[in-house]
Design a protein around this nucleic acid. Structure first.
Length: 333
RNA sequence: GGUCGGGUAGCUCAGUUGGUAGAGCAGGGGACUGAAAAUCCCCGUGCCGAGGGUUCAAGUCCCCCUCCGACCA
């Protein structure tokens, strides 16, 4: 996997900014939001959340969305979509890039707060998503139905007939990607073709990436405490009210950790205690995947957030931002 | 005190007629171009409670001890 060069290399920059775009990344419960907000306060900026679930209106407690009363700077990327709608990385790319450019125009510095690695990359790197039906894609529906009927392996075998290059890149059990491969074929491209571009991806915005690193054991305890707090704060009621708005049929929102489990508890399939412990375990695994995703991005400067020491984290972050700006400034001159 | 269960991987447990152990969960690692909090791939040595005995060979049979649970007193 190739990663774009450091932000200082201007030649690759498609859409140059005056200064690098600051991104705070890291696993869930690492303290991204608090740090991003503090940085935004200092830099006279705003926060752009890059989070596939906080994007949904009404999903507040379970996604760890910062409460309106606690917001000290303008926020973007929250409550952008209805929970029933299907959002995506490409929609976020379009939205997020608009936010970034508008903010710079207005002299407000956006600070990206990213939990969804794919969204951050779609925003910041030169991903080029092919055109096609975004919602209610008939190809997607058709192949999902086929997989439900014949099993994923059989449908993968069919893909292997039509497009062996793509099939070779996709595991025969990976239903999401098998379906996506057929979608891409219907759009005149292929999974293999798109995948090949990964190795040559450039940067769209120059970035300063700050990663919050927390010892896994400490993070696990923090997650558990946070889940208990969410339940105390009324997660069950939130899910109940989302159900009345059609959460059950929501393609994406229904997959959110903390929501799908509570839905099961409300249905009586599992007890509330079981749901709570499942939410904790699912969140641990999610944090592990986030760690894996961000770990390979060499642009990230990691800072230790084992302890909740906001001032220290802010100082270190501002230093990183400052250093990067100087380097970038030099590159431009 | 007596009877019966049971003590095997961090947890819940499998382990066939004796051939030195294996699942699920948890955990770890990895992949990822329009669902990404999704989806998928890889990773299991543990005094088989302690001690003794039978046997070429014991998690598995016998004895004894110990701990937990249930029942009877």
């Amino acid at each position: 996997m190739q990663w774009p060069a450091a932000s200082g290399e201007k030649s690759q920059v498609v859409c140059p900014l005056d200064v690098p775009l600051v991104c705070v990344v890291g696993p869930t419960a690492s303290g991204k939001t608090a740090l991003a907000q503090r940085i935004a306060e200092r830099l006279n900026g705003c926060v752009l959340s890059a989070d596939s679930m906080q994007i949904y209106r009404g999903m507040d407690i379970g996604t760890g969305k910062i409460a309106p009363a606690d917001r000290t700077v303008p926020y973007y990327g929250l409550d952008v979509a209805a929970p029933g709608s299907a959002y995506s990385a490409s929609l976020f790319q379009e939205y997020g890039r608009g936010v970034v450019l508008r903010a710079y125009e207005q002299g407000c510095r956006p600070i990206v707060c990213g939990g969804t690695g794919f969204y951050v990359r779609a925003l910041v790197d030169s991903y080029d998503f092919p055109a096609g039906e975004q919602v209610g894609n008939p190809v997607r529906d058709a192949y999902n139905a086929r997989i439900a009927e014949c099993g994923c392996d059989a449908v993968w075998a069919e893909l292997n007939q039509r497009d062996p290059a793509s099939a070779a890149l996709i595991n025969a059990h990976d239903a999401k990607r098998v379906v996506r491969a057929f979608e891409l074929l219907s759009e005149g491209t292929s999974y293999a073709e798109q995948h090949a571009k990964l190795h040559a991806i450039g940067v769209h915005f120059p970035v300063t990436m700050i990663g919050l690193q927390v010892d896994p054991e400490i993070l696990r305890h923090r997650i558990d405490a946070r889940v208990d707090q969410m339940v105390e704060d009324g997660l069950v009621d939130e899910v109940r009210s989302l159900l009345s708005e059609g959460l059950r049929d929501a393609l994406t929102a229904h997959q959110a950790i903390g929501y799908k489990e509570i839905v099961q508890a409300l249905d009586g399939a599992i007890s509330l205690d079981e749901a709570i412990s499942q939410i904790k375990f699912a969140t641990h695994r999610y944090a592990k995947r986030q760690r894996t995703w961000f770990r390979k991005d060499k642009r990230i400067t990691w800072i230790c957030a084992d302890r909740d020491n906001g001032e220290e984290l802010l100082c270190r972050s501002l230093k990183i931002v400052d250093t990067d700006e100087k380097r970038y400034g030099k590159g431009c001159a």
